[in-house]
Amino acid sequence: MRLALAERPHRIAPKFFYDAAGSALFDRICELPEYYPTRTELALLGRHAGEMAALIGPQADVVEFGAGSATKIRLLLSALDRPRRFVPIDISAEHLHAAARALQRDHPGLAVQPLAADFTKPFTLPAPAGPAGARRVGFFPGSSIGNFAHGEALTFLRQAAMLLRGGGLLVGVDLVKDPSVLHAAYNDAAGVTAAFNRNLLVRANHELGTDFDPAQFAHYAFYEPRLQRIEMHLVSRRAQTVRLAGEPFVLAEGETLHTENSHKFTVDGFRRLARQAGFEPGPVWCDERQHFSVHWLQAPR
């Protein structure tokens, strides 16, 4: 947070949204009528899980990046042939372990081994619960790949290609579309996304001892068509001073803290990115309105 306040323009990585309260707020966002990505991706998974499972193959070792509530993996697990293990990875440990316990209760024969970690940094997977040599497959739903800048996305995909060598990656990707649809999705009428955005300040107060007044920051989200991305900011409503460990940081009226980018892709554009990272792009599933896509990427051997 100190770096975010010291540098200009102010920016912070969206992974810091996800404490227990932030994760719960995001779960509420996923249920909003304006927020099309979750229900569209769930529909694609429900409709095509059998085809996806056939590509993944039997007795797979499944790794989910940014697992959250582990809702979407349930559709895939139900279609898979005797999966050996599921490793959900998420930065929000409390939320992750609660979701893993619920999943384990519903799938008693599956080895569920949650890993609280930042998957954008090097990490070590837990040792396999069964025989070594299982085909390892990644699952990265929700278009979280869009939160990365181009270079970051390429780095993540290259690391995933090595981790999943001989297997593959199933990834959800949000598509370029009418900006009015995107604007509504990130500016819901109930204000849940605004609360999610401001919760980052609440978390900083609780964990770092800052003295943000969240009410003095306005939620601001817009689509930048030249960069094909949603930008999300917190806008200072007035000139104010924020303190961190006694150090003052002055924010002018109208100055923003840039909290998230959510890049949108074309199908061909994402396939080019995946190929550049070392994957071989395979089948793609899209909804009828071409709002969202799920891609199968074959990892190198």
Rank of each mutant, 00 (worst) to 15 (best):
P33Y: 00
S143V: 08
A4E: 03
G133D: 07
L170P: 12
W285I: 11
A245R: 14
A185Y: 02
V112A: 01
G138D: 05
I12D: 00
A185N: 07
D81C: 13
N199Q: 11
Y186S: 09
F156V: 15
L103E: 01
A127R: 15
V63P: 05
F123R: 13
L3R: 13
L169K: 13
Y35L: 07
D268V: 12
Y18P: 14
G246R: 09
H291I: 06
P214L: 08
V173K: 12
P114C: 00
A299C: 11
V294H: 05
E260C: 14
R2W: 01
V284A: 01
F139M: 08
R275M: 08
L44T: 10
K72Q: 02
I91P: 01
V87G: 00
T71D: 00
L244W: 00
G282A: 06
G46P: 05
T38M: 07
A277P: 15
M232R: 06
G22L: 07
R39P: 05
D211R: 13
F26S: 11
A99L: 10
E7G: 09
K72T: 10
A299G: 13
L75I: 05
T155Y: 05
D178V: 12
A274Y: 15
S180E: 13
S92C: 15
T71I: 13
A67C: 05
D178C: 15
L75T: 14
R158F: 03
E51S: 14
A274T: 14
H258E: 01
A274F: 11
Q240D: 04
A153F: 05
R229E: 02
F292L: 09
G166L: 09
S78I: 03
V63D: 03
L251M: 08
Q113Y: 00
A299N: 10
F140I: 08
I29M: 11
W285K: 12
A117M: 08
V87I: 15
Q104S: 11
Q290K: 14
D213L: 12
E64D: 09
P300N: 04
V63K: 06
L75Q: 07
K177E: 04
M1T: 04
L182N: 06
P37K: 08
D174F: 04
V192A: 04
A13S: 15
G138K: 10
L297I: 14
R28Y: 01
L80W: 06
A189T: 12
E260M: 12
V250C: 01
P114K: 09
S236Q: 00
R101H: 01
P281Y: 01
P14S: 08
F86D: 03
D106H: 11
A134F: 07
G209N: 02
F140T: 13
D106E: 15
D81F: 06
H97P: 04
E64A: 11
